[in-house]
């Protein structure tokens, strides 16, 4: 858990995560933020409680007579598993959902240069949104850009500042297509973020726009 988180998930994202209607890449950002934020974890579990109540009150469709027997059969034939989960080692930068996608800790990230010292690694997801890790050297500005859709930026290390405020570890910025912003990493430490977009970013300058197809930003 990370104390002092000031920028949280929206109710719409929490509801979408609970009902399962978000693209996989967006789910990664939500699950990662919740890993660090008890407030949003409690909110997400409250939304799940609504799902439980809906399931409880739902109409029923009878299952076949053999259904229970089949379940017991598969339970008995399943390989014995440890009924308690092994505790996974915590990582100071990447919470568990990101470690699953990266295949380990930070040293497993396959960084690619994205210009001006910024590096990125696109995470393998299906669906209409894209998730990437961004490595922004301390004091560097990411080119001024706006969005065709939504962009989520979740800080994992260091901090950045833009027109909307200051974002430290665990903070998530939810920007819609209206926002044009220029995030600048704090001087103290290189900044690592998870950025999720559901449409390609639009850069204002000509050069970044030319580079865009190659960077897959």
């Amino acid at each position: 858990m990370t104390p002092n988180i000031k920028h949280h998930l929206t109710e719409e994202l929490l509801l979408g995560y609970s009902t399962g209607s978000l693209p996989e890449a967006v789910n990664i950002a939500v699950a990662t933020h919740i890993s660090m934020c008890d407030e949003c974890r409690a909110a997400a579990e409250a939304y799940d409680s609504v799902g439980g109540a809906v399931l409880d009150q739902a109409e029923t469709v009878s299952v076949s007579e053999s259904c229970f027997a089949s379940v017991m059969e598969s339970i008995r034939t399943a390989p014995a598993t440890d009924r308690r989960l092994a505790r996974r080692p915590a990582d100071p930068v990447l919470p568990a959902p990101l470690r699953d996608y990266v295949g380990g800790s930070l040293d497993k990230v396959n960084w690619r240069p994205a210009g001006m010292g910024v590096r990125q690694a696109i995470l393998p997801t299906s669906g209409e949104a894209t998730a990437r890790l961004l490595y922004i050297p301390a004091g560097t500005a990411v080119p001024d850009h706006s969005h065709g859709g939504m962009e989520l930026t979740l800080v994992l290390q260091g901090a950045f500042r833009d027109e909307d405020g200051h974002f430290g570890r665990g903070d998530i910025e939810v920007a819609d297509s209206e926002v044009e912003h220029t995030p600048i990493a704090d001087i103290g430490e290189d900044c690592i973020c998870l950025a999720v977009t559901d449409a390609p970013l639009r850069f204002k300058g000509l050069l970044p726009r030319l580079a865009q197809p190659f960077l897959r930003i």
């Binding site: 609970s18 009902t19 399962g20 693209p23 996989e24 789910n27 990664i28 939500v30 699950a31 990662t32 919740i34 890993s35 974890r41 997400a44 579990e45 799940d48 409680s49 799902g51 439980g52 109540a53 809906v54 399931l55 409880d56 989960l85 996974r88 915590a90 919470p95 568990a96 959902p97 699953d100 996608y101 997801t125 299906s126 669906g127």
Partner: peptide, 27 residues
């Protein structure tokens, strides 16, 4: 119990209908 079973059913639904895995928060 209802909430817990709902989350299992929801995750299974995402898996079969959208062929996506469901990232879960760190336990």
């Amino acid at each position: 119990v209802a909430t817990w079973i709902f989350t299992i059913a929801r995750n299974r639904k995402i898996d079969i209908l959208r062929r996506q895995k469901r990232p879960e928060p760190e336990d």
